[in-house]
Design a protein around this nucleic acid. Structure first.
Length: 493
RNA sequence: GCGGGAAUAGCUCAGCGGUAGAGCGCCAGCCUUCCAAGCUGGGGGUCGCGGGUUCGAAUCCCGUUUCCCGCUCCA
């Protein structure tokens, strides 16, 4: 799957546009068009429903993007959410300054007539005594001075730009949850373990954004902070470790449940050396994007780091009282954190198919019906017959009360089907002459319409009175097309 | 930031000193009883932007911006 093909389709059909395109575009920002906004809503809606509403141990939250600046001091983002970078002037490779010292050094030693040695971190050369000053990779180039990046967007609260009013656009939604931990606990009388979920925008001044909506400076997260009593054990294991594995499986299952092939998913556990400052263990779910295996979501065990930090900086107690053990505990936190935009991209990529139908190429997005931006398209077979058109509009209006439904009569039926295939509409409903009859010939209509399924292109004849029930089963009750279709006669294709 | 590539119609691209083009798509009409059919007509581009060379620049030169691919980071 080529990303450019998808980018082109997304633009042409109104899923995703480049931000500020008429001004030349701006790197790393994208706008969701009429179909994209529906798709994105659907991704968020099913996630919220599956992980919040249907679970007894989860509640939701919507915290503000701008917060008290001390939040980011407590979280560590002001001090450590930076990546000083150095470049080799010779081979042009780039390194994180804090990691250069730990890398073995390729040294061309002049004392031994330019022989090449690999010297471990911090060690001097045995022959000339030199310590590393040059590129660890090529051993020849001077390194540039470290350039400091802070990945947080600065902004000012209030109209006056002064240091006192400096704050940040949140770089993650998680901190909004931590600072509300006690509020939620008091308001909902929760017992451990329980979780708080949030969906919202986050902002990071990425060094290198790119790969379409994969890495952007403004993006949307779906995050859960799941609070666990670290003193509990489950099946002989610490509860946080046990439940961490449970979350990993549930998150992976969520993606496959909505159409992502398990062949395109892979787990990656961060080596200890790469763990973030707050993490005890982090496992990523990787997806096979066109540019390679990359992170779709991360599931971290953040321990009690965040709650302890906020307790320390705010002076407020952020604990839960364990009635059994009669003690205050600072919960451990499991954090399944997904990118809405990355999830959406994975769903798009996995749905995209090019098929051969009657020697013609058919482009189809095989979205899970829950994700499809449009559920039903109502199409008239002939638009010169006013009864057909009128019945079509009537059906659209009726169905649109329950499902996203469009009406289109601007082309021949074959083209209309292809258009709907290309945006992933799972069902088309066609009104034809037999539906309404022919008054001039004295023929009565049969009151039936054709329903056509996207992937199989099969068609069935369904009485208009049964249409709502059929779509209710297909779209709301999760019935399979095969099960529903066998109850109705096939229509000619 | 560094290196490489690119920018012409909604999309894919041709044109490479002499009146801006093609295919597809889109819109309107005709036709059409179920999978991108056909016919007729139509809209749409100051050729990324700025400067220079020239009688004349989409085309040559300089600058600049943006995008794409690598190096690095994360959702």
């Amino acid at each position: 799957m080529n990303m450019d093909v998808l980018v082109s389709l997304c633009k042409r059909r109104g899923f995703i546009f480049q931000s500020s395109e008429i001004y030349g575009g701006t790197g790393s920002c994208w706008d969701y068009g009429p179909l994209g906004v529906e798709l994105k809503h659907n991704v968020k809606r099913v996630w919220w429903r599956d992980f919040v509403q249907r679970r007894a141990d989860m509640v939701g939250l919507d915290a503000s993007i701008l917060m008290h600046p001390t939040v980011w001091k407590a979280s560590g983002h002001v001090d450590s959410f930076t990546d000083p970078m150095v470049d080799c002037r010779e081979c042009k490779r780039r390194f994180r300054a804090d990691q250069v010292d730990d890398m073995p050094w390729v040294h061309y030693c002049e004392a031994t007539k330019g022989n090449k040695f690999t010297i471990a971190a911090g060690e001097p050369c045995k022959h000339c005594g030199a310590r590393r000053t040059l590129c660890p990779e090529c051993g020849k180039g001077q390194l540039t001075a470290p350039r400091q990046f802070n990945l947080m967007f600065k902004t000012f609260m209030g109209p006056v730009e002064e240091e006192a009013s400096l704050t940040y656009l949140r770089p993650e939604t998680a901190q909004g949850i931590f600072v509300n931990f006690d509020n939620v606990l008091q308001a909902t009388r929760r017992k451990l373990p329980f979780g708080i979920a949030q969906i919202g925008k986050a902002f990071r001044n990425e060094i290198t954004p790119g790969n379409f909506i994969f890495r952007t400076r403004e993006f949307e997260q779906m995050e859960i902070e799941y609070f666990v009593n670290p003193h509990d054990t489950i099946e002989g294991r610490p509860a946080d470790e046990y439940l961490h594995d449970v979350w990993i499986e549930q998150c992976k299952a969520w993606f496959t449940g909505y159409g992502v092939s398990s062949d395109h998913l892979r787990l990656h556990q961060h080596p200890d050396a790469e763990l973030a400052h707050y993490s005890k263990r982090t496992v990523d779910i990787l997806y096979q994007f066109p540019m390679g295996w990359s992170e779709l979501m991360g599931i971290a065990n953040r321990t009690d780091f965040d709650l302890k930090q906020h307790a320390k900086f705010s002076g407020k107690s952020l604990t839960w009282f364990d009635e059994e053990r009669k003690e205050h505990v600072v919960p451990f936190v499991l954090e399944p954190s997904a990118g809405v935009d990355r999830a959406l991209l994975a769903f798009l990529l996995d749905a995209y198919r090019e098929e051969e139908v009657r020697n013609e190429k058919r482009v189809v997005l095989r979205f899970h019906p829950e994700l499809a931006p449009v559920k039903i398209a109502v199409l008239p077979l002939l638009k010169k017959r006013s009864e057909i058109v009128a019945r079509g509009h009537e059906l659209r209006d009726r169905l649109a009360r329950r499902w996203t439904t469009v009406y289109d009569d601007t082309a021949a039926i074959g083209r209309l089907y292809r258009r709907q295939d290309e945006v992933g509409t799972p069902y088309c409903l066609t009104v034809d002459v037999k539906t309404v009859g022919d008054a001039e010939k004295g023929e009565a209509g049969d009151g039936k319409v054709t329903i056509r399924e996207r992937d199989s292109m099969e068609q069935i004849r369904v009485p208009i009175d049964a249409v709502d029930t059929v779509f209710g089963r297909l779209l709301d009750a999760g019935a399979s097309w095969a099960d529903v279709a066998r109850e109705f006669p096939r229509a000619e294709g």
